[in-house]
Amino acid sequence: GYQSFAVGAPGATVPAPTGTAVRTVGPQEAAKLVRDGELAVPVQVDSVSQGNKGLHYVVSPPEDWGSGVFGSADIALFPVASPRDCRTEVLSPQSLPEPSGLESTPVPSTYSTSTGPVTEHWCLYASHDG
């Protein structure tokens, strides 16, 4: 059957034919984090697996955030129901969910002819006290 895995900003996922995709943060996000003291980066994951193959994925943050802005920030990565739940207006260091597994099985291995993707959302939230 047909499989597809796509990751990106909400509404702008990019297909990953190899099955591995990345969402990056860099200088632009670091500047926002320093300026605002916090940062929320929503990530959308679209999964399709037709036939009787299920699809499972693992989310891996960097092993080392380095010694810069992100390295000195408090960082959380967690699933959210919608991108609206991944905004600095609704998040705070005190309101973060308990750490959960960084993996998901959006498509079970029961037979599926569905052509539409199963869409899931993740949130990277960082706070920095300057």
Binding site: Q3, F5, V7, A16, G19, T20, A21, V22, R23, T24, V25, G26, P27, E29, A30, A31, L33, V34, V43, V45, S47, S49, N52, K53, G54, L55, H56, Y57, V58, V59, S60, P61, P62, W65, G66, G68, V69, F70, S72, L77, T105, S109, T110, L124
Partner: peptide
Amino acid sequence: LDPAAEPVHAITFTSTTFRPGEQP
């Protein structure tokens, strides 16, 4: 801390498929 000197960090999403009876 200089945000302009921040390296690019990647959050990686790795998918696998599995068949019925297999552990995902």
